[in-house]
């Protein structure tokens, strides 16, 4: 069985700054894959490469066995058209640090938007499904609220429901709890924990070491654009082998 995500020597630069200096890793189906590391280590950039929000400069990135953003014919690479990239992204859900809910739509409309617009699902069916998803994240009563009327934690849970509405095979989480008040973090993590239990493949960039330890199946510590250490989260977090991992963990734990 192919890995859900496979990265082969992924490089990414912004101008002269090289942010990713050769990332090799594999995310297995159904696993919760945690990326940790200091800010500027390239973990968010790597996550954004997975759904082609950032273009990879060198190396290969595959999702479900399919090359992201390009098509390979012989030894030549062809850039995919925007519509083809969009097609790849349909199956990859993403949750952002700043939620990025659509502020001019109610919570329900936010969740319905993509199924109706992208998949062409009928409105009544999409509405029913959206209500189910909002109930799943514990916000059935907030369906008609606008994002500005919701707390950060509620907004993030709507954002998770919105991503799930496309029935993705992979979910990307970009520091989903970093913009939240401490007391709201738990609600979001609970939803993510339920999702993990349902067997969803998840790549999670996070500073929540507790979540990584409890829910994570694999963990990667990144620093300076490279993978420094990887393995079982409980082992890496309690008994880090590398000096830089030890230094980082001693500060955050």
């Amino acid at each position: 069985m192919t890995a859900m995500v496979r990265a082969e020597s992924v490089h990414k630069s912004f101008g002269l700054v090289e942010v990713l200096k050769g990332i090799d890793l594999e995310v297995k189906r159904g696993e919760v894959f945690c990326l940790i590391g200091p800010s500027g280590s390239g973990k968010s950039t790597f996550l954004r490469c997975i759904n082609h929000l950032e273009k990879v400069n060198a190396g290969r990135l595959y999702v479900d066995g399919e090359l992201v953003g390009y098509r390979q014919k012989g030894d030549k690479l062809y850039e995919l058209k925007d519509s083809e990239v969009a097609l790849q992204r349909r199956d990859i859900g993403m949750v952002f640090q700043r939620f990025n809910l659509f502020p001019h739509m109610t919570a329900l409309d936010n969740v319905m938007e993509a199924p109706v617009q992208v998949k062409g699902m009928g409105r009544s069916q999409a509405r029913e499904r959206a209500r189910e998803l909002l109930e799943k994240v514990g916000l059935a009563d907030k369906a008609d609220s606008y994002p500005a009327q919701l707390s950060g934690g509620q907004q993030q849970r709507v954002a998770i429901a919105r991503a799930l509405a496309m029935d993705p095979k992979l979910m990307l989480f970009d520091e989903p709890t970093s913009a939240l008040d401490p007391e709201l973090v738990g609600d979001v993590l609970d939803v993510m924990r339920d999702l993990a239990e349902s067997g969803m493949t998840m790549v999670v960039v996070t500073h929540e070491m507790g979540f990584a330890r409890e829910v994570g199946d694999s963990l990667v510590f990144m620093d300076g654009g490279v993978v420094v250490e990887s393995g079982d989260p409980r082992e890496v977090l309690t008994n880090p082998q590398h000096e830089r991992t030890q230094a980082f963990l001693s500060k955050v734990l």
Binding site: N51, L53, D82, S83, A86, L87, R89, R90, D91, I92, G93, M94, F96, R98, N100, L101, F102, E113, A114, Q117, V118, A159, R162, A163, M166
Partner: peptide, 13 residues
Amino acid sequence: GQTEAAHALGMSH
């Protein structure tokens, strides 16, 4: 972030 969120959901330009 709005454009990114929409693109991430598979919406076209």
